[in-house]
Amino acid sequence: MAQMTMIQAINDAMRVEMERDENVIVLGEDVGVNGGVFRATDGLQKQFGENRSIDTPLAESGIVGTAVAMAALGMRPIAEIQFGGFIYEAMDAVCTQAARLRFRTGGRFNCPLVIRMPYGGGAKTPEMHSDSFEALFLHTPGLKVVVPSNPYDAKGLLISAIRDNDPVIFYENMPLYRSVKQEVPEGAYTVPIGKANVVKEGNDVTVIAYGNMVRLSQQAIEAVEKERGVSIELIDLRTISPLDMDTIFESVDKTGRVVIVHEAVRTGGVGAEIIARINEERILKLEAPCVRVTAPDTPYPPTLIEDKWLPTKGRIAAGIKKVLDF
């Protein structure tokens, strides 16, 4: 086993799958010679050639749209969108074409396509780069949405995504790319899509997070546990669509108190959907109203105030105390 950052684990996942299956290709802006602006595809063109690690013209709709047709015709393309904030340029290709191809052909064409995108606050990017748009894709039938929180999960989930017969949006948190190193097995292994991970068991509160918010929630949980002498469960969703409600319900049955943390804006978000489903199935198990710790409903802020805008350890801790004190 080797110590890897998340970007190395992502690179390794693609390499392993490209070695296994010659129909797996990567395409996008700067992914070939340059190995991607974050170096996610570093070395792939050298190993697999220009026909499998492909520099495309600078056009998101073209990248995803051509990949949709290739996927239908037997390829397994991994399309990189350079920054998640640019995805609106490809929105028709993603939500009208990729998501619906299987549906609108009565199951004739699968669309085994992975769309990888860096996202997330804290990387001090220019505006329109960092947004968290995962809820848009949760709201789009036909797509799967995956958000890893660590290198091990990133590799296993990406391999699952490449092998999946449906289109998968694969969100990669920018600050997580190089901030954490972890033991990552060599070769292929999978982490299943649609299965959340109970990072830490606890009895009094359930905290649900994903991406970079898992790490931040962990810190908040430690502080509150120490201060209050309670035990708090932490669930890393890993997959946004489909949501693993079984794991969430099991935890809610135990704790009766729920805090959901995401860096996406609040309204119509992943938290809203989870709370709706908890209300539908588990409302009598609740000891307190569910709390959302999120960014406020504004467009992504100017860089110098992003740390104030994003959820903080303190705001998460306050959210946990709110459900404890209800």
């Binding site: 290709i25 073209g62 749209g65 051509t66 949709v68 047709a69 028709d92 009208t96 074409q97 609108r104």
Partner: peptide, 23 residues
């Protein structure tokens, strides 16, 4: 492919398919 409704998207699909044949 089924008839395309979104104007011009089929040109991208055809580009992708023709590109796949080349690859």
């Amino acid at each position: 492919f089924p008839p395309q409704i979104i104007i011009a998207m089929q040109t991208i699909h055809a580009a992708g398919a023709g590109w796949k044949f080349r690859l």
